[in-house]
């Protein structure tokens, strides 16, 4: 008895709800032009745009979450994907290479429409990315490239950054500068494309200038402590070192600490690059880094989504496109460090 009364009540409530909702949405459906655009062309453009993304899925696999770059990318991708009506999924392998290959394999099975990957090395995902394209998934690579090209690579032009940094070092330390010409390089993980590109470019520049002597080129494995230890050793060996160049800013902060500990701040120039989080600008102002090439990670997140929009609207099949979008880069020094970096999302 009570149950049937409840059921009636519920049905009534539901019907009322539907009616209200219908009444509210009536003007919109009655006048589709208002929702989609004023002109026929605009309406069609909007319809094509919406249809390209509605109900599609974008997957993101960074090497790990919890570092400024990946936090920022995720934040932007997730927000812009939601605006497009796309579903966002993420797998965080926590820097575990095995977990990363497993995550990508599992995602290929689940067939998202777009997969954004952050390659820890040029080889790790090379085969899987091919497989993903065969399975009909558009693959976008962010900042660290794989040996397998895919629909898009979005990221800094690390060769150019390495070259420009080296040229600046030559100008500061080379012929006519009155300085020693001794340079130390702190590599990242030697199998990462970022490290390979920057170090190759820098060494090519230095090779043209015999007065520049690369006294050390050691891998710091993205670790500030390792960079600090290597640089401390190099500095006792070569207290007249002119410059140290690290392929990633957060790691190279360790080299900056070693220079500070040795009392050589300002005498040994510290060069680095990266995505430009606030901690870097603070460190530049504190004198830990002298010159920093920044490829704004926030803009990169937006670039990823721009590529997604282009790729999905183009109608191209996975494997057809091979595009590269190098990120906008600017140079930060103590003179322009105020406001040149971004705050982490949520701070």
């Amino acid at each position: 008895m009570i149950r049937s009364t409840l059921r009636t009540l519920l049905a009534g409530a539901l019907a009322a709800g539907t009616l209200t909702a219908g009444a509210l949405s009536l003007p919109a459906s009655a006048n589709a032009q208002e929702a989609l655009g004023a002109s026929r062309a605009a309406i069609e453009a909007r319809q094509r745009f919406n249809a390209a993304f509605e109900g599609k899925t974008i997957a993101f696999v960074p090497i790990t979450m919890g570092i400024p770059l990946t936090i920022t990318w995720k934040d932007t991708i997730e927000r812009e994907a939601a605006e497009l009506g796309m579903k966002f999924v993420m797998r965080d392998p926590n820097l575990d290479m095995g977990a990363m290959t497993q995550a990508v394999s599992a995602l290929i099975g689940g067939k998202p429409d777009v997969m954004v990957v952050h390659n820890p090395s040029v080889q790790l995902l090379a085969k899987l990315l091919k497989k993903a394209e065969k399975a009909g998934i558009h693959v976008i690579q962010i900042n660290m490239a794989s040996n397998t090209p895919t629909s898009a690579y979005i990221g800094a032009d690390f060769y150019r950054i390495g070259k420009e940094t080296a040229e600046d070092i030559v100008a500061q330390c080379g012929a006519g500068s009155g300085r020693s010409g001794k340079v130390a390089i702190v590599e990242g993980d030697p199998t990462s494309s970022v490290s390979m590109e920057e170090v190759t470019a820098a060494k090519a520049v230095f090779a043209e200038h015999p007065e520049i002597q690369v006294v050390s080129s050691q891998p710091g494995y993205w670790d500030a402590n390792k960079a600090r230890e290597i640089t401390a050793s190099v500095l006792t060996q070569h207290p007249d070192l002119c410059a140290t160049f690290g392929v990633w800013g957060i790691m190279q902060l360790g080299a900056g600490q070693a220079i500070k500990e040795a009392g050589l701040t300002g005498k040994v120039l510290n060069y680095a690059n990266g995505g430009g989080p606030q901690v870097i600008c603070d460190s530049i102002k504190a004198g830990l880094i002298d010159k920093y090439w920044s490829f704004d990670a926030k803009l990169q997140g937006h670039d990823i989504m721009t590529a997604v929009k282009m790729i999905l609207q183009s109608g191209a099949a996975p494997g057809e496109l091979r595009t590269v979008l190098y990120s906008d880069t600017n140079v930060i020094t103590a003179d322009n460090a105020d406001g040149a970096c971004w705050q982490m999302p949520g701070q």
Binding site: D223, A224, I250, L253, G254
Partner: peptide, 13 residues
């Protein structure tokens, strides 16, 4: 204290 930061990646080293 040395590097002014802690990087949890050291756990994987």
């Amino acid at each position: 204290a040395s590097s002014g930061s802690v990087d949890l990646r050291i756990i994987n080293s």
